[in-house]
Design a protein around this nucleic acid. Structure first.
Lengths: 115, 115
DNA sequence: TGCATATATAAGCATATACTTATATACTGA
DNA sequence: TCAGTATATAAGTATATGCTTATATATGCA
């Protein structure tokens, strides 16, 4: 019972974070592959600090993980998160963001890292 | 493509509304049966204006429908909503709220209406 | 018609949110 | 060691949010 209440609150916290165009797009991009900050900046056409602040919210909530690779920090979905089942389902419902990454690639702006 | 963008935004709008403990609980209650405002007030232990304001947001977004039955106004899920598939899935993930309605019933506070 | 009940709305306020610009930190490579 | 790139953080600000109290509206019933 106590646990149940927590689950509802955890779900609400996650949904609140997903309930923003920028963050939902970020999560949609991460569904397909890990990305670094500068890629988000390019795709979202937003300032770097703004993107970083959104990523921090997602990370603070445990929805994404980060991993440094050289000068870049790559973000990826945290599939271990308590609410990941809901997240995955949401990401399956929204339009695929792959195309945006492909456009980046064609523009030569996709970060390739072999580490 | 244009449509896809709208879908993401519509999803974000819905998730933002669900990303609040009060509204998520309301939707969880409506999953099981229609309810009137005074029932929400009782279950949520919140002021009537506050509850009404949350319901208005849900209604303005089209997530719930309202129907007057005598002096009461009953709310129910709008299963026709564009984002209803996501909503239903979310409501399946959170703990069942039926028990709260049962408690109301035992306290003799459940509104019965034969209209 | 008039009072009680149910609900909605308005106005006010404290806090949260999402940007901005400026600056700090961390890594890379010459 | 130093310049350049990537990222994070801080501070400021405008707007959004969620409550409160007060009041308006709609219905039921005597």
């Amino acid at each position: 019972m106590e646990k149940a209440a927590i689950e509802l609150e955890a779900t609400a916290r996650t949904l609140k974070l997903l309930g923003d165009n920028t963050r939902l797009t970020v999560m949609g991009l991460l569904k397909d592959s890990e990305c670094c900050v500068c890629e988000f900046v390019e795709v979202l056409k937003m300032s770097q600090p703004s993107v970083s602040q959104h990523l921090r919210k997602l990370r603070d909530a445990g929805l994404v993980k980060e991993r440094r690779k050289g000068q870049w920090i790559f973000y990826s979905l945290n599939t271990e998160h308590e609410t990941y089942p809901v997240i995955r389902h949401v990401l399956e419902q929204i339009p695929d963001q792959k195309e945006k990454l492909r456009a980046l690639e064609e523009a030569g702006l996709r970060i390739q890292c072999d580490v």
